[in-house]
Write a protein that binds this DNA or RNA. Structure first.
Lengths: 149, 149
DNA sequence: CTTAGTGCAAAGGTTTTGCAAATTG
DNA sequence: CAATTTGCAAAACCTTTGCACTAAG
């Protein structure tokens, strides 16, 4: 069994919650997913496994996944809230091209280190962070940016 | 005249858009505001200046402000989208306590520097970034965090 | 058997859109 | 004057909630 599954089950038990087939379905669909997905995406994916699943259950389960530390808000500027794996994936930050929407994931040790310092400086106990850099990628910058619109 | 006002007017001209009294009202209300405000907050503030203003106009103008580089999505996890000044305020990042909601704004030169490196490394032309650290502040962490729940 | 979870559909909150009238350049 | 913008209200969109039924422990 995958570690994420185990962790989710353990989380449910610790909260006195039940491991239902609907939750298993949503978990499976979520773990199969790649990148950033919205609740709607997850519902669609989960319905491929169990067509009878309701969207309310997906929203409810997504909250549990976030609470269990498996899912994290990926925080897009537009449209619905999106989530991504947080448990297995090593931590990464996002670099977004505002021209073409290209999304690059990166990890920069110095930034991580500096963040730790900041938590210390303000007496905080860290639980997470999110960093998104925005700009124009080489392609889009080359195309003269925003001449017409 | 404030530089922001000038910038917004310039932006409108460059796009062939009109400087209407409604837009002036929203701009004024926005520039007067402090911290992070939602569209609803901005509507309320703008209505104090011009009670006849419609909420659609606020949403539309807020997009223009963002496009003009004056407003920026402050990206809360919950509730409505919130915006903040981006132009005059020196850049800052956010440190949020998930226990009591306390929000600290800070600025860390090394992080800024590292970000510049990343933009370079991926051949991006920077336009902005957003960093939010989350954790428990000293008060909340002291209160035994989440022993019971 | 008791309690929590489910799907549905309706409600809730936020943002967008169509339109006729008003305003700007 | 032509073209954009406005306010309104309705629609669209995303998420949550109430409820009767089902399923897990």
């Amino acid at each position: 069994m995958k570690e994420e599954q185990f962790r989710f089950i353990h989380y449910l038990k610790s909260k006195g919650l039940k491991l239902t087939s609907a939750r298993k379905t949503v978990l499976t669909a979520f773990l199969r997913s790649e990148g950033h997905l919205s609740a709607e995406d997850l519902l669609a994916a989960a319905k491929k496994i169990d067509p009878g699943l309701g969207q309310a259950t997906v929203f409810r389960t997504l909250k549990l996944l976030a609470d269990a530390g498996l899912a994290q808000d990926a925080c897009q500027d537009e449209g619905p809230r999106r989530y991504e794996h947080v448990y297995k994936h090593a931590h990464h930050d996002h670099l977004l091209c505002i021209g073409c929407g290209k999304l690059i994931e990166f990890c920069h040790p110095e930034i991580e280190k500096a963040q730790t310092e900041i938590f210390k400086e303000f007496g905080f106990q860290a639980t997470g962070h999110r960093l998104e850099l925005r700009g124009l990628c080489a392609d889009c910058a080359g195309k003269s940016g925003k001449a017409n619109d």
